[in-house]
Design a protein around this nucleic acid. Structure first.
Lengths: 186, 186, 186, 186
DNA sequence: GATGAATGAGCCTTCATTCAT
DNA sequence: TATGAATGAAGGCTCATTCAT
């Protein structure tokens, strides 16, 4: 007897994975990283079991979301963005995936550190030019840039969606770092 | 099926209240503000019911913890501390009660705003002198000081206890604000 | 050292008892007989302990409320009321203390049966006259009257306050028993 | 700390649902509709979570129990039962599911009213014939029949199982309505 | 490989009851 | 004797995780 009803079979694997990622993105942004995993599966239109197959634990899911962001960051860098653009992009990610930071912090060792290195590498590539252009404070190191990112992202966590962009702008200004928010960030 | 063992009577009231506060302090610092309330009661050696009598909801408990901190801050200010001292004190509070910020942010309306105002008032009283002494960046407003506090406190949330002091020091330096950590802050 | 603060001393005993009764009356009517005993104590302005001294358990309290009603019924009978008046009075009690019936039913043996006998005696005293006046169905016995009371009172339990009087009137009519609701019963 | 023992898988779904219904039936009858839901789950040999999946709240469960009864009533009507038979069936339901009435009364709006209408429709279909046969008092309307049902069912709530049948019979007689209890009703 | 139901641990909250003062 | 805080058992509900189909 064949599959009775709704069982798309293996073909759905890839489709499911990306639906889950997208759903996780949205749910984490709306309800924080403590949101029920079941709500992500539901939103993705996918069974609980499939969620577990693709992402064995909560952190995997968060890491995957972050990885997408880092990919995008690297792409922007390769496409010629400058430091303010890149900080703006990071800020957008922080605004949209608020809370994702929280969770990664807890399981840092493996995944997180690699991701962090990739971000640092991107920023490092623009460090010199930014210093020269006065877009960051004199004497600021790459680690300072990373610290700035962490400070800003962390603060956004505790703000309602509507206030995040303004909060980020004020924070970057206080840090003396130039940032160019992407179009459409509210 | 009520009382099973001893009933210390109302005499325990004050003792219980402070035991609960202390336990909350510790538990929130260790496990964040989402920690089980039952763990706080247990750690305080107090019944669940008593916890609820003293603090009808999670936010009451958090607010009480913060209030203690603000009291201490005002006392320090009255005792002649300068801005770096006060930022140092705030930093100690942030290090020890990490996570408390989280919860207050969500229920901001009443309690939090008042507490926030009290902190702002304390910092405002030292703003002029700090500017004159070059302890904060030129042009920094009182709101900038508050933003600095928020950025630093927020970042500590995601750090294991052992790294917090160092993280705070680096952050304050990046912000260009002088801070004098109290003795014994690890 | 004398009593520190609010401790009226033994003088309050009688006062407390009646305050508790009144509060119980009101609370049972509003929230049913399952209402927290603490809410009764609070409403009476009396400590929990005192409530327990006067009424060692929930049923005692209910029984006391009912006893008041029966007293009033006997008084009305002695004052010359006829059966429809008395049924009306019983109905008022049922409307106001809805739910009291429920609880008595569970602990019937002692208290309840005695109370029940007193009601039956009152109705019996008017049975003949009521039959003669056609106020009850031909052939109705005193036990039938009691059954009627039970049916009506039971049905009111499940009705919101506003509908009870109308419900009672319909029910008595269906039972073929004349009833004269007291003034002011809504 | 999730599943500890066996997980029968979805195959158990239907089995669980009916086990829950049956358990609810029994528990509500024995202990009233305020009985712990956990006791129902336990009796059904089903996890707490499954109970909540099948019946998200107490009322759902009660409604499902009542619905079964109404289904049976309609079936009996379709099968040629007359009014006394149907009242007898209703009486059996009331005897066995005592207390179910209570809960429905509180959440009347949606579900209950529909169920009530279905019962009324069944009785209405036999009203004429019953009047003609003298099985109900002259002039009794369908609403009077419904009121009778409510009075009888309500009274049974407060009686121990062993006395219910006799109580019902006396009540119906007092109401002047003929009732034929099904075989085996104790 | 997907599905979705089952499971039960665990947290929150309420409340009856006791008892030191 | 009154007071009111303390206590903890118990019930409601949620959710991470497993697993038969």
């Amino acid at each position: 007897m064949p599959t009775s009803r709704t069982n798309p079979g293996p073909a759905a694997a890839a489709r499911n994975r990306s639906a889950l990622l997208e759903a996780a993105h949205a749910v984490f942004a709306e309800s924080g990283t403590a949101a029920p995993l079941s709500s992500i599966a539901r939103r993705a239109g996918v069974g609980q079991g499939s969620l577990y197959r693709h992402f064995p634990d909560r952190v995997s899911l968060v890491a995957a979301v972050v990885e997408e962001n880092v990919d995008e960051l690297e792409a922007a860098s390769a496409a010629g963005a400058d430091l303010p653009d890149l900080l703006g992009l990071v800020t957008r990610h922080a605004i949209e995936s608020v809370g994702v930071v929280d969770l990664l912090a807890e399981d840092r060792p493996r995944r997180m550190l690699q991701l962090r290195e990739r971000v640092a590498a991107v920023l490092a590539a623009h460090h010199e030019a930014a210093l020269a252009a006065g877009q960051v404070p004199q004497g600021a190191t790459v680690e300072d840039l990373m610290l700035g990112v962490e400070l800003v992202a962390g603060a956004l966590t505790r703000r309602p969606a509507g206030e995040r962009a303004a909060m980020a702008v004020r924070s970057w200004r206080l840090l003396g770092m130039a940032v160019a928010l992407p179009e459409g960030v509210r």
